[in-house]
Computed example of a mutant assay.
Amino acid sequence: MFTGRVEDESTIYLTDSLISNYYVDPLPFRYVLGHELVHIKYNDFGKRIVWLGFKTVFSNVKRAESLLIETRADMLSYKYNDFSFVEVKGVLTTLKKNEKGKEKSRTYKQGYPSRSLLIEAMREYKDFSPEFIDYILEDFCSFQNVFKNTRNKINDLKKQFK
């Protein structure tokens, strides 16, 4: 798998396969490293572990919060790497193949965006903007059939991501 994770403010782990692929195609490496650096910038490390164990009526709220954290890291990696849309689409397609095509039904339950959703969103948006956040949250709420009172709580998350 071509993945990484942040341990703390000074440690990023990258998979051997991602590092080995660098000389074949450096773009996935740059994308994943950029994604993880954004997590450090916003002190995101360690938060997901707590959220995954949080099983209450608010689970869709926590999934949506995680989704925003992950899409922020994806969008800002795209932006900071100054990728063209064609380049980022290629990277996301490579990552999607490498992850064996996990799609919305599985990724949303884990609080992550699907690679296909990111490709759609990045075609339209170039930054982690309020419009992008609305797009992602609307897709999440529609796909998950989120009730109105929970949607209101999810919409309250927007304040954290200005």
Rank of each mutant, 00 (worst) to 15 (best):
C141S: 15
L118K: 04
T150W: 09
V88L: 06
D44C: 08
E7I: 15
V86D: 14
D156Y: 07
T94G: 09
K158Q: 07
L76Y: 06
E131S: 13
E70P: 02
L95G: 00
D16S: 10
H39M: 10
S116W: 01
D16C: 05
K97Y: 09
K153T: 07
N43S: 14
D139I: 04
F29Y: 15
A64T: 02
E120W: 00
K79R: 15
G90H: 02
F161D: 03
A121I: 08
K89F: 08
T94E: 13
S129A: 06
L76R: 07
Q110M: 14
E7A: 11
N43H: 13
V146W: 03
M1Y: 12
F140R: 03
Q110E: 14
L67W: 01
I136K: 04
L137R: 06
I133P: 00
V146T: 15
S20F: 04
A121F: 10
S77T: 08
K109Q: 14
E99P: 03
Q144T: 14
D16R: 06
D82F: 10
V146C: 06
Y22P: 01
Y42P: 01
T56P: 04
T107V: 05
G101P: 05
Y125T: 04
T11Q: 10
E138T: 15
F2Y: 14
V88C: 04
N81S: 14
L68Y: 00
P28Q: 08
R63W: 04
Y125A: 03
L76N: 04
D139H: 07
D25C: 08
M75Y: 11
L14N: 01
I69T: 09
G34M: 11
D25M: 08
E124M: 15
R123D: 13
S129R: 08
F45M: 08
F128G: 01
S59K: 15
I119F: 03
I154W: 03
L118M: 15
L137G: 05
E65N: 12
I40C: 07
S10E: 12
E87F: 04
G46C: 12
K153P: 03
S114T: 03
D82E: 15
R5N: 12
L118N: 01
E9V: 06
L137K: 12
D16T: 12
D25W: 12
N149Y: 11
H35Y: 14
I69H: 04
T71I: 12
E103M: 10
V38Q: 08
F29V: 01
G34T: 07
E36D: 11
L95F: 05
S84N: 11
S129M: 07
F161C: 06
P26H: 12
I40N: 10
C141Y: 05
S114Y: 02
S66C: 13
N21D: 12
D156C: 09
S129C: 06
I49T: 11
L52G: 08
R115F: 10
P26S: 13
K109V: 11
I119T: 04
E65G: 04
H35R: 14
H35M: 11
Y78D: 02
E70A: 02
F132G: 00
V88Y: 00
N152F: 10
Y22C: 00
T71W: 00
V91M: 04
N81I: 03
N145S: 13
E36C: 06
P28R: 02
K162C: 05
K79I: 10
Y80T: 12
P113Y: 03
Y78G: 02
